[in-house]
Amino acid sequence: MDKINHALDEFREMDALAAQDSPIHRMHPLVKLLITLAYILCVVSFHKYQLSALAVMVLFPILMFQLSGIPVRTCFYKLRIVLPLVCAVGLLNPFYDRAPLLQLGNITVSGGVVSMITLMLKGVFALMASFLLIATTPMDSLCAALRKLHVPSLLVTLLLLTYRYVTVMLREVSVMSDAYHLRAPGQKGIHISAWGSFLGQLLLRSMDRAEDLYESMQLRGFRGEFYYAEVPKCTAGAVAFALGCSAFFAAARCWDLPQLLGNLIT
């Protein structure tokens, strides 16, 4: 099925993006992981009415996009399914919180509208930061970074194997779906009457395939601890970058930078 093959290709494209070369790609994965965590924590900690203070946080993803050479449109294309869901989170706020908060010319903006936009931005920023981390760091390196943070080996291995097995499962779905459609011409999707057996078969096939893969790993010396990728050395530049980012996050969190700038100018 075209859609599934497309999904598989998209999944593999993430590997290809992570394999590119740029200052951000070359940066120690632990540094990138910590910066991203700090960014997300900082973003979600803004108060629901701190819209202008939050807006300045967009500078971090912009900087990362510039330095990594990853096109912004790729990010939004990859996140196209989840972004609307994130944006939908605060949709009801304008109905519950109608107290006027801002006056933009003749337009009165209620607290609900501001909090809705703030929530949307928080979601979008967090997603963009996560995307940038994954798009600039191979999964093996990310797992190596998690191990350096002493995340239990079991969890990290589980994460890595899940990542690997997703493609295996998608491949099975693709084969089964092709077989179905070759014998069900004219049908758009899979008919509801076949869902049960389709999912059951998918589960069984995926389990068989996963078992084969696991046996193959065991036969090649796997003892439960994955050998993770060699990570590059943590350079002074990376540390400086991390410190700079952290300082910016802290400043953006403590002061409303756009307002301060506005006060300076006026």
């Binding site: 295996v168 084969d212 193959s216």
Partner: peptide, 14 residues
């Protein structure tokens, strides 16, 4: 060393 019948089941790294 064991070479499996299905290479897709054997090759799991990128």
């Amino acid at each position: 060393g064991f070479v499996l019948q299905d290479s897709d089941s054997q090759m799991f790294m990128p």
